[in-house]
C-alpha cells in the first residue's frame, strides 16, 4: 500500500476518536484523506462523546492485556500535541472496609506510590481522612473528551481535512478505505459492551485528578472536568442494548460517589449517558486489513488511551507497509 496513487485516494468512514486520529496520523505524514461520518462532526451520537478521558495505562493494566499498557503510555504525549492534557496523575482509593483491595491492586499494577496522611492531603485535600491510604500513579493524565474531539476537528481543519456528513460504507467508495465506524461497521468478532455515566456539578468538593474507587461490587471512577463538573463512570455490562441509563446503574454510581465523599449527595445531576463500547474478545483494538479496507475497531474502554497508537499503526501500514502488533490480516 505504499504506491503513491493509493496515498492520494484514502477515505475514512467514521469521525469518532478512531476516525479522527486516523485522519490526524495520516495528515502528519502529508497524506490528506477524506473523512465522512453519517452524523457529521462528533457529538452525542458517538460513544467517544461519553468517555471518561482518563489516560491511565497503568491502572488499566490491572485487568488489561500488556498491549494496553505498552501503547497507552504514549497517549498523553500524542494528545498533548492536539489538546490540553492535565498531567496530574491519578489516585486509587478504597473505603475503609475494603483496604485489602488496595494491596491487591498495588500488586497487579506498576508505576505507583503509596500515599497517606499529609502526602495525600497535598494531592487531594478533600479525600484525605484519618487512616486512608491511596495509590498515586504520578505519570498518568486525563483530558476532557468533548474538548479533545473539538480540538482534533480544528487541527484537522487547519490541515484541510473537514468532516463530511454522509452515509457511506466501504463498498460505496473506491480506493483505500479506513472503516472507523465502531459497532456500525459490523466487524466479525466485535460486540457491544454497555457503559453508563453521570455528570454532576458541585462546588462542595474539589478534585484535581481522576480518582478510582475500588469496590467489590460497584467500582467507580470520577474524573474532574473543571468548573465543579465531575464525570462518574462507568458501568460495564455484557449487553448491546441501547437506551437511557437504568435506575440501577444510577443508584450504583451515585451510591459509590456518595460513599467516597458525602458532598456528592448535594451535587446537581446535569447529565446522564449510556452507549456501547465496541470490543473484541481480548479487549485489545485492531487494525484489520480486508482487501483495500482497513478496519480500525475494538477500542473498548480505551478509545482515548489507544486511538493514537491504533491510528499510527494504520498509517504505518498505509505509508510504509509496516505491520505492527495491532495489525491483523483478514485475507
Amino acid at each position: 500500500m505504499s504506491d503513491n496513487s493509493e496515498l492520494s485516494d484514502i477515505t475514512i468512514i467514521g469521525a469518532g476518536v478512531a476516525g479522527l486520529w486516523a485522519a490526524y496520523a495520516l495528515s502528519e505524514r502529508g497524506i490528506t484523506p477524506r473523512l465522512i461520518d453519517r452524523h457529521g462532526a462528533p457529538g452525542a451520537h458517538g460513544c467517544s462523546w461519553w468517555a471518561g478521558g482518563m489516560l491511565a495505562p497503568f491502572c488499566e493494566g490491572a485487568t488489561s492485556e500488556p498491549a494496553v499498557i505498552r501503547h497507552g503510555q504514549h497517549a498523553a504525549a500524542d494528545w498533548a500535541g492536539v489538546t490540553d492534557v492535565a498531567q496530574k496523575g491519578s489516585l486509587v482509593v478504597t473505603l475503609a472496609r475494603d483496604r485489602a483491595e488496595l494491596d491487591r491492586f498495588a500488586r497487579r499494577t506498576s508505576d505507583h506510590a503509596r500515599v497517606s496522611g499529609d502526602a495525600l492531603a497535598a494531592l487531594e485535600p478533600d479525600l484525605a481522612q484519618q487512616g486512608r491510604e491511596a495509590l498515586y500513579f504520578a505519570t498518568e493524565s486525563h483530558l476532557s473528551p468533548r474538548r479533545a474531539l473539538a480540538d482534533l476537528v480544528a487541527a484537522l481543519a487547519r490541515r484541510g481535512i473537514t468532516v463530511e456528513q454522509g452515509e457511506a460504507t466501504p463498498a460505496d467508495i473506491p480506493g483505500t478505505v479506513l472503516d472507523c465506524r465502531g459497532l456500525a461497521a459490523d466487524t466479525p468478532g466485535l460486540r457491544g459492551v454497555r457503559g453508563e455515566m453521570v455528570m454532576l456539578r458541585t462546588d462542595d468538593i474539589t478534585l484535581c485528578r481522576p480518582v478510582r474507587l475500588l469496590h467489590p461490587r460497584h467500582p467507580l471512577y470520577i474524573v474532574p472536568r473543571g468548573d465543579g463538573v465531575f464525570m462518574l463512570g462507568a458501568t460495564q455490562i455484557e449487553s448491546a442494548r441501547r437506551g437511557p441509563v437504568t435506575a440501577r446503574a444510577l443508584l450504583e454510581l451515585l451510591s459509590a460517589a456518595y460513599a467516597l465523599h458525602p458532598a456528592f449527595a448535594e451535587a446537581a445531576v446535569i447529565e446522564t449517558g449510556a452507549d456501547l463500547r465496541p470490543a473484541f474478545a481480548d479487549h485489545v483494538p485492531r487494525v484489520i486489513r480486508q482487501g483495500r479496507v482497513l478496519h480500525l475497531n475494538g477500542l473498548f474502554r480505551h478509545g482515548y488511551l489507544l486511538a493514537p497508537a491504533l491510528a499510527r499503526q494504520a498509517a504505518d501500514f498505509i505509508e510504509l507497509g509496516r505491520k505492527g502488533d495491532l495489525f491483523h490480516d483478514a485475507d
Binding site: E65, I237, E238, S239, R241, R242, R248, F280, D282, H283
Partner: peptide
C-alpha cells in the same frame, strides 16, 4: 475479557458454565 474467560474454561476443564441473564436483558 471474554478471551481470558475462554482460556480459563479450557485450562480448568470445567464442564458447566453458569450465566446470568438479569442485567443483559434483551441485548447480550
Amino acid at each position: 475479557s471474554p478471551a481470558v474467560m475462554e482460556a480459563a474454561f479450557r485450562a480448568s476443564g470445567a464442564s458447566v458454565a453458569t450465566v446470568s441473564l438479569r442485567r443483559e436483558t434483551g441485548g447480550g
